[in-house]
Amino acid sequence: MAKMKFYCDAERCIECNACVTACKNENEVPWGINRRRVVTIKDGEPGERSLSVACMHCSDAPCQAVCPVDCFYTTEDGLVLHDKDTCIGCGYCFYACPFGAPQFPSAGAFGSRGKMDKCTFCAGGPEETGSSDEHRKYGANRLAEGKLPLCAEMCSTKALLAGDADVLSDIYRKRVINRGAAALEWGVNLDKANVRHTPGMSGKASSKS
């Protein structure tokens, strides 16, 4: 089976946050929940880059390892999904996840956590595929309809890619080779990741690709 992955190309992401909005709309996530977020580092400084981050669907997922009720499962497509009926809202997955993917609605007294919610790769959950229960708890199941996650499908610059890891690698490798050739032609030191601000260089290396 294919292993489904996200890939976000920092050279292409323009921080438009459309993936965040599309995800919220498609999955009708509760108020205060963002399954996906765009983080900009060095905002307004040389070397600014943005990345769209959600669940990375790790092969050895920390959330899955620490869950006290073992509510996570990995699908044949390599997606890490969870069962909200079993989840107790303890928050351990959020502490363990390196990417901050698990999100919790505020529910009950003291503003304690409700059932964890996270990116499902638009693949629903353990409920019957296409059922209203599945949609209510986990959002869309686009994968069952032969579609990819909406965030990646509608990304205007095709920075965010989703799909079979091998296909993504091929796409990305082609991009990098093009960019690398262009950058080397310009004599840019990529180790410093400062492609856009080499003295005497006009324009962007990435615009050559």
């Binding site: 963002n34 977020r37 901050g100």
Partner: peptide, 12 residues
């Protein structure tokens, strides 16, 4: 980093 999403450590 900076992010439009409000949440705990969402910029990390």
């Amino acid at each position: 980093g900076r992010t439009q999403v409000r949440g705990v450590d969402s910029g990390v």
